[in-house]
Computed example of a mutant assay.
Amino acid sequence: MYSNIVCGVDGSDLSSKALRHAVALAAKTGGKVTAVTVTEPSIIVAPGAEIMMVDTSAIIADLDKAKAESAKAILADADKIAGEAGGKISGMHVANSPAAEGILQAAKEVNADLIVMGSHGRRGLGRLLLGSQAAEVLAHTELPVLVVK
């Protein structure tokens, strides 16, 4: 039924819970799980920058390096959680993308047939019932979405 599951992970307790659900579901269906973490684009806002010239490339490169290292740690933790739950996952880091767009991009790339994610993560203030990223994924995909709370 669900042979190719994408699970959004961000290091939060709720995304870990969602990952455990994805791994358990994959074990029952004989499917595989791809844990996806997304890092947003690095931007620098400097009021008055129109009158000065600053080379921000080194700053942006350092920010991107730190985010890549954080993503690597999140995926390593996800691999450990999956192993403890009795499963195996593959990991994917989508860089320079809003979270929902990155999850949807990953789902398309791996030809997923289910997206699993937590109802709230570490991003944004959230919404009344669902986190803003979960709501965005639901609004922009035709795939089934399992939202874990």
Rank of each mutant, 00 (worst) to 15 (best):
V94L: 06
C7M: 00
A22F: 03
G91Q: 08
V23F: 00
I51S: 10
S12I: 07
K65H: 15
G30T: 05
D55P: 01
M92G: 03
V6M: 02
L75R: 05
D64Q: 12
G11E: 04
V137S: 02
V9H: 01
K80D: 06
V45P: 00
L138N: 06
Q133H: 04
L63Q: 14
S12V: 05
S16H: 15
E84Y: 09
E101D: 14
G118V: 11
K88C: 09
K88I: 08
G31V: 02
L138P: 08
S132E: 03
L129N: 14
I115V: 14
M53G: 14
A26H: 09
I103C: 00
I43T: 13
T37R: 03
V38I: 10
L104E: 01
A27H: 15
L138R: 06
R127P: 12
I89L: 08
L130G: 11
R20F: 12
V45F: 07
M117C: 10
A95Q: 08
A61I: 11
S132R: 07
P144A: 08
K67W: 07
C7A: 10
E69M: 01
D77V: 00
A106I: 03
L138A: 03
L114Q: 03
G8Y: 02
P47R: 05
I51E: 13
H93Q: 08
L143Q: 00
L75E: 07
L19I: 11
M1S: 07
V23N: 05
S12C: 10
V147N: 05
N111I: 04
V54W: 00
P144L: 09
E109F: 01
G124Q: 11
A82M: 08
K149E: 06
A106V: 02
V9R: 04
L128D: 12
A107R: 01
H21K: 12
R20I: 15
V33C: 09
L114A: 04
R123S: 15
I74L: 02
G124H: 08
L63M: 15
T34G: 04
T56W: 11
A68N: 12
L129C: 14
A68S: 13
I44P: 10
T56R: 08
L19P: 10
G87C: 10
K80P: 03
E69I: 05
L143R: 01
S70V: 15
D55S: 06
G83N: 05
L143I: 02
G11F: 05
K80M: 10
H21Y: 14
M92K: 04
M52S: 06
L104D: 05
V45K: 03
A76N: 10
K80L: 09
A66S: 12
A82G: 07
V23M: 01
V116A: 05
V45C: 00
I115T: 09
E69F: 00
D79E: 14
A76H: 08
A73F: 07
E40C: 03
I74W: 02
A99E: 07
